[in-house]
Protein backbone atom coordinates (compact mmCIF):
# COMPACT_ATOMS: atom_id res chain seq x y z
CA UNK A 1 0.00 0.00 0.00
CA UNK A 2 2.81 2.26 0.98
CA UNK A 3 4.59 1.49 -2.21
CA UNK A 4 1.51 2.30 -4.21
CA UNK A 5 1.26 5.72 -2.62
CA UNK A 6 4.92 6.48 -3.17
CA UNK A 7 4.50 5.53 -6.78
CA UNK A 8 1.54 7.83 -7.08
CA UNK A 9 3.47 10.64 -5.45
CA UNK A 10 6.34 10.10 -7.82
CA UNK A 11 4.00 10.15 -10.79
CA UNK A 12 2.42 13.39 -9.57
CA UNK A 13 5.88 14.89 -9.21
CA UNK A 14 6.81 13.91 -12.74
CA UNK A 15 3.59 15.26 -14.14
CA UNK A 16 4.19 18.48 -12.24
CA UNK A 17 7.65 18.81 -13.70
CA UNK A 18 6.51 18.15 -17.22
CA UNK A 19 3.65 20.58 -16.87
CA UNK A 20 5.95 23.22 -15.38
CA UNK A 21 8.48 22.69 -18.06
CA UNK A 22 5.88 23.14 -20.74
CA UNK A 23 4.59 26.35 -19.20
CA UNK A 24 8.00 27.96 -18.98
CA UNK A 25 9.30 26.69 -22.22
CA UNK A 26 8.81 29.23 -24.94
CA UNK A 27 9.60 28.43 -28.48
CA UNK A 28 13.37 29.00 -28.91
CA UNK A 29 14.69 30.46 -32.14
CA UNK A 30 15.55 27.76 -34.66
CA UNK A 31 19.17 26.78 -35.00
CA UNK A 32 19.71 25.72 -38.58
CA UNK A 33 22.63 23.53 -37.55
CA UNK A 34 20.29 21.42 -35.48
CA UNK A 35 17.94 18.81 -36.90
CA UNK A 36 14.48 17.78 -35.93
CA UNK A 37 11.56 15.82 -37.34
CA UNK A 38 8.16 16.54 -38.79
CA UNK A 39 5.14 14.30 -38.92
CA UNK A 40 2.58 14.07 -41.71
CA UNK A 41 -0.88 12.79 -40.99
CA UNK A 42 -3.66 12.17 -43.49
CA UNK A 43 -7.29 11.98 -42.46
CA UNK A 44 -9.91 10.97 -45.01
CA UNK A 45 -13.33 12.58 -45.29
CA UNK A 46 -16.34 12.58 -47.54
CA UNK A 47 -17.31 16.23 -47.28
CA UNK A 48 -17.52 16.69 -43.52
CA UNK A 49 -18.21 13.03 -42.74
CA UNK A 50 -15.44 10.66 -41.66
CA UNK A 51 -14.42 8.29 -44.43
CA UNK A 52 -14.65 4.57 -43.81
CA UNK A 53 -14.96 1.40 -45.83
CA UNK A 54 -18.39 -0.15 -46.00
CA UNK A 55 -20.21 3.14 -45.34
CA UNK A 56 -22.56 4.44 -48.00
CA UNK A 57 -22.14 8.12 -48.88
CA UNK A 58 -24.15 10.31 -51.20
CA UNK A 59 -22.53 12.88 -53.42
CA UNK A 60 -24.74 15.98 -53.11
CA UNK A 61 -23.52 17.27 -56.49
CA UNK A 62 -24.69 14.24 -58.46
CA UNK A 63 -27.03 12.37 -56.15
CA UNK A 64 -24.95 9.25 -56.72
CA UNK A 65 -24.08 7.03 -53.80
CA UNK A 66 -20.92 5.06 -53.25
CA UNK A 67 -19.52 2.67 -50.67
CA UNK A 68 -15.70 2.67 -50.65
CA UNK A 69 -13.69 -0.53 -50.25
CA UNK A 70 -10.16 0.54 -51.18
CA UNK A 71 -8.17 3.75 -51.04
CA UNK A 72 -4.45 3.93 -51.66
CA UNK A 73 -2.19 6.64 -53.00
CA UNK A 74 1.45 7.60 -53.20
CA UNK A 75 2.79 10.80 -51.64
CA UNK A 76 6.34 11.59 -52.72
CA UNK A 77 9.01 14.20 -53.33
CA UNK A 78 8.26 16.24 -50.25
CA UNK A 79 9.63 19.74 -49.88
CA UNK A 80 9.28 22.17 -46.97
CA UNK A 81 9.76 25.91 -47.01
CA UNK A 82 10.27 28.30 -44.11
CA UNK A 83 8.52 31.65 -43.88
CA UNK A 84 11.96 33.13 -44.70
CA UNK A 85 11.88 31.28 -48.00
CA UNK A 86 14.49 28.64 -47.16
CA UNK A 87 13.47 25.32 -48.58
CA UNK A 88 14.35 21.82 -47.51
CA UNK A 89 13.97 19.01 -50.02
CA UNK A 90 13.57 15.65 -48.33
CA UNK A 91 16.20 13.29 -49.81
CA UNK A 92 14.39 11.49 -52.58
CA UNK A 93 15.26 8.00 -51.37
CA UNK A 94 13.31 8.70 -48.17
CA UNK A 95 10.50 10.57 -49.85
CA UNK A 96 8.07 7.90 -51.08
CA UNK A 97 5.07 6.93 -49.01
CA UNK A 98 2.09 4.75 -49.78
CA UNK A 99 -1.00 5.84 -47.87
CA UNK A 100 -3.37 2.90 -47.53
CA UNK A 101 -6.63 3.55 -45.70
CA UNK A 102 -6.82 -0.13 -44.80
CA UNK A 103 -3.57 0.17 -42.81
CA UNK A 104 -3.89 2.89 -40.15
CA UNK A 105 -0.12 2.87 -39.56
CA UNK A 106 0.38 4.24 -43.09
CA UNK A 107 -1.81 7.29 -42.49
CA UNK A 108 1.05 8.93 -40.57
CA UNK A 109 4.73 9.13 -41.29
CA UNK A 110 7.67 11.03 -39.84
CA UNK A 111 10.43 12.76 -41.79
CA UNK A 112 13.68 12.93 -39.82
CA UNK A 113 16.81 15.07 -40.17
CA UNK A 114 14.91 18.20 -41.07
CA UNK A 115 16.86 21.39 -40.27
CA UNK A 116 15.25 23.35 -37.44
CA UNK A 117 13.00 26.05 -38.77
CA UNK A 118 9.56 27.62 -38.83
CA UNK A 119 8.04 26.04 -41.91
CA UNK A 120 4.94 27.52 -43.47
CA UNK A 121 4.73 25.77 -46.80
CA UNK A 122 4.80 22.18 -47.96
CA UNK A 123 4.71 20.64 -51.38
CA UNK A 124 4.51 17.03 -52.46
CA UNK A 125 3.66 14.91 -55.44
CA UNK A 126 0.57 12.76 -55.54
CA UNK A 127 2.05 9.81 -57.37
CA UNK A 128 5.61 8.86 -58.26
CA UNK A 129 7.86 11.18 -60.27
CA UNK A 130 8.60 10.17 -63.85
CA UNK A 131 12.30 9.56 -63.28
CA UNK A 132 11.67 6.98 -60.54
CA UNK A 133 9.20 5.25 -62.84
CA UNK A 134 12.09 4.50 -65.18
CA UNK A 135 14.75 3.52 -62.61
CA UNK A 136 16.45 0.11 -62.56
CA UNK A 137 14.70 -2.54 -60.50
CA UNK A 138 17.41 -2.37 -57.81
CA UNK A 139 16.33 1.20 -57.02
CA UNK A 140 12.71 0.27 -56.40
CA UNK A 141 12.92 -0.75 -52.78
CA UNK A 142 11.04 0.08 -49.58
CA UNK A 143 7.71 1.72 -50.32
CA UNK A 144 8.35 1.30 -54.05
CA UNK A 145 8.99 -2.46 -53.87
CA UNK A 146 6.61 -3.93 -56.43
CA UNK A 147 6.72 -7.27 -54.60
CA UNK A 148 6.33 -5.60 -51.20
CA UNK A 149 4.57 -2.44 -50.06
CA UNK A 150 3.74 -1.44 -53.64
CA UNK A 151 2.26 -4.81 -54.63
CA UNK A 152 -0.84 -3.98 -56.66
CA UNK A 153 0.28 -0.39 -57.28
CA UNK A 154 2.15 -1.14 -60.50
CA UNK A 155 1.15 -1.85 -64.09
CA UNK A 156 3.43 -4.63 -65.21
CA UNK A 157 2.12 -4.65 -68.82
CA UNK A 158 2.70 -0.91 -69.16
CA UNK A 159 5.68 -0.24 -66.91
CA UNK A 160 4.71 2.35 -64.33
CA UNK A 161 3.32 2.88 -60.87
CA UNK A 162 -0.38 3.30 -60.19
CA UNK A 163 -0.56 6.55 -58.23
CA UNK A 164 -4.07 6.38 -56.80
CA UNK A 165 -6.43 3.43 -56.38
CA UNK A 166 -9.98 4.12 -55.24
CA UNK A 167 -12.58 1.35 -55.41
CA UNK A 168 -15.95 0.52 -54.04
CA UNK A 169 -19.51 -0.26 -55.01
CA UNK A 170 -22.23 2.02 -56.25
CA UNK A 171 -25.82 1.48 -57.38
CA UNK A 172 -24.98 3.83 -60.26
CA UNK A 173 -22.18 1.58 -61.53
CA UNK A 174 -22.97 -0.23 -64.77
CA UNK A 175 -20.25 -2.82 -64.18
CA UNK A 176 -21.63 -6.34 -63.81
CA UNK A 177 -20.33 -6.56 -60.25
CA UNK A 178 -21.65 -3.10 -59.34
CA UNK A 179 -18.18 -1.80 -58.60
CA UNK A 180 -16.39 1.42 -59.43
CA UNK A 181 -12.68 1.15 -60.02
CA UNK A 182 -10.35 4.08 -60.42
CA UNK A 183 -6.72 3.12 -60.94
CA UNK A 184 -4.93 6.30 -61.91
CA UNK A 185 -1.33 6.47 -63.07
CA UNK A 186 0.75 7.40 -66.10
CA UNK A 187 4.00 9.32 -65.85
CA UNK A 188 4.04 10.85 -69.31
CA UNK A 189 5.34 7.94 -71.41
CA UNK A 190 8.78 6.49 -71.94
CA UNK A 191 9.73 6.67 -75.62
CA UNK A 192 6.46 8.26 -76.79
CA UNK A 193 4.40 10.79 -74.88
CA UNK A 194 1.42 9.42 -72.96
CA UNK A 195 -0.87 10.65 -70.18
CA UNK A 196 0.69 12.28 -67.15
CA UNK A 197 -1.23 12.01 -63.90
CA UNK A 198 1.60 13.19 -61.64
CA UNK A 199 0.26 16.16 -59.70
CA UNK A 200 2.19 18.47 -57.41
CA UNK A 201 0.35 19.97 -54.48
CA UNK A 202 1.64 23.07 -52.70
CA UNK A 203 -0.02 24.18 -49.49
CA UNK A 204 0.89 27.44 -47.80
CA UNK A 205 0.00 27.69 -44.10
CA UNK A 206 -0.40 31.49 -44.11
CA UNK A 207 0.42 32.78 -40.64
CA UNK A 208 0.59 29.29 -39.25
CA UNK A 209 3.97 27.61 -38.78
CA UNK A 210 5.26 24.13 -38.20
CA UNK A 211 8.06 24.65 -35.67
CA UNK A 212 10.68 21.99 -36.21
CA UNK A 213 13.11 21.83 -33.28
CA UNK A 214 15.41 19.11 -32.07
CA UNK A 215 13.26 16.85 -29.93
CA UNK A 216 10.07 18.76 -30.78
CA UNK A 217 8.17 17.22 -33.66
CA UNK A 218 5.26 19.14 -35.14
CA UNK A 219 2.50 17.35 -37.04
CA UNK A 220 0.96 18.55 -40.29
CA UNK A 221 -2.56 17.24 -40.22
CA UNK A 222 -4.04 17.03 -43.70
CA UNK A 223 -7.69 16.60 -44.53
CA UNK A 224 -8.33 14.60 -47.69
CA UNK A 225 -11.85 15.04 -49.03
CA UNK A 226 -12.89 12.21 -51.34
CA UNK A 227 -15.91 14.15 -52.54
CA UNK A 228 -13.46 16.28 -54.50
CA UNK A 229 -12.35 13.13 -56.32
CA UNK A 230 -15.75 13.33 -58.02
CA UNK A 231 -16.50 17.03 -57.84
CA UNK A 232 -13.56 18.92 -59.29
CA UNK A 233 -12.79 20.72 -62.50
CA UNK A 234 -14.44 17.72 -64.13
CA UNK A 235 -17.60 16.24 -62.69
CA UNK A 236 -16.95 12.53 -62.41
CA UNK A 237 -20.17 10.56 -62.56
CA UNK A 238 -20.01 6.89 -61.65
CA UNK A 239 -22.90 6.23 -64.03
CA UNK A 240 -20.78 7.48 -66.95
CA UNK A 241 -17.35 6.29 -65.83
CA UNK A 242 -17.46 3.43 -63.35
CA UNK A 243 -14.04 2.22 -64.42
CA UNK A 244 -11.13 4.51 -65.24
CA UNK A 245 -7.66 3.10 -65.53
CA UNK A 246 -5.01 3.84 -68.14
CA UNK A 247 -7.23 6.05 -70.24
CA UNK A 248 -7.19 9.71 -71.38
CA UNK A 249 -10.05 10.47 -68.96
CA UNK A 250 -7.68 9.69 -66.07
CA UNK A 251 -6.10 13.11 -66.51
CA UNK A 252 -9.39 14.72 -65.45
CA UNK A 253 -9.43 12.63 -62.31
CA UNK A 254 -5.83 13.64 -61.57
CA UNK A 255 -6.90 17.28 -61.86
CA UNK A 256 -9.62 16.49 -59.34
CA UNK A 257 -7.55 14.53 -56.83
CA UNK A 258 -4.97 17.23 -56.42
CA UNK A 259 -7.79 19.34 -54.95
CA UNK A 260 -8.62 16.74 -52.29
CA UNK A 261 -5.73 17.76 -50.08
CA UNK A 262 -5.82 20.63 -47.61
CA UNK A 263 -4.11 21.42 -44.35
CA UNK A 264 -6.54 20.98 -41.49
CA UNK A 265 -4.26 22.09 -38.66
CA UNK A 266 -0.76 21.90 -37.26
CA UNK A 267 0.14 20.41 -33.89
CA UNK A 268 3.22 22.12 -32.58
CA UNK A 269 5.10 20.58 -29.69
CA UNK A 270 5.31 24.02 -28.05
Amino acid sequence: MNRFFSKLAFLALVIGFVACKKKHDHDPAPNSNMKGSIEFEFEHFVGTQAFSFGTSYTNPATGESFTPSMLRYFISNIELKTSAGVSYVVPQEQSYFLIDHEKPETLKFVINDVPEGDYNEVSFIIGVDSLRNTKPISERTGNLDIAGVAQGMYWSWNSGYIFVKFEGTSPQSTATDGKFRYHIGGFGGYSSPAINCIRKKTINFGMDKAKVRNGKTPTLHFAVDLLKFFNGTTQLKIANNDTVMFNPFAVNIANNYVEMFSLDHIHNAY
Binding site: T134, P136, I137, I146, Y154, S156, W157, N158, S159, Y190, S191
Partner: peptide, 23 residues
Protein backbone atom coordinates in the same frame (compact mmCIF):
# COMPACT_ATOMS: atom_id res chain seq x y z
CA UNK B 1 15.85 -4.46 -77.40
CA UNK B 2 14.81 -1.23 -75.76
CA UNK B 3 11.16 -2.09 -75.47
CA UNK B 4 9.25 -5.31 -75.10
CA UNK B 5 5.94 -6.81 -76.17
CA UNK B 6 4.14 -6.22 -79.44
CA UNK B 7 3.10 -2.80 -78.12
CA UNK B 8 6.35 -1.83 -76.36
CA UNK B 9 4.62 -1.49 -72.98
CA UNK B 10 7.68 -2.55 -70.98
CA UNK B 11 10.93 -0.65 -71.36
CA UNK B 12 13.39 -2.67 -69.30
CA UNK B 13 14.09 -6.39 -69.60
CA UNK B 14 14.45 -6.51 -65.81
CA UNK B 15 10.83 -5.37 -65.47
CA UNK B 16 9.48 -7.72 -68.10
CA UNK B 17 8.74 -10.93 -66.19
CA UNK B 18 6.34 -9.11 -63.85
CA UNK B 19 3.81 -8.89 -66.66
CA UNK B 20 3.31 -12.56 -67.59
CA UNK B 21 3.52 -13.59 -63.92
CA UNK B 22 0.72 -11.26 -62.84
CA UNK B 23 -1.47 -11.40 -65.96
Amino acid sequence: KREFFWDGGVFDLDLFALAPIEA
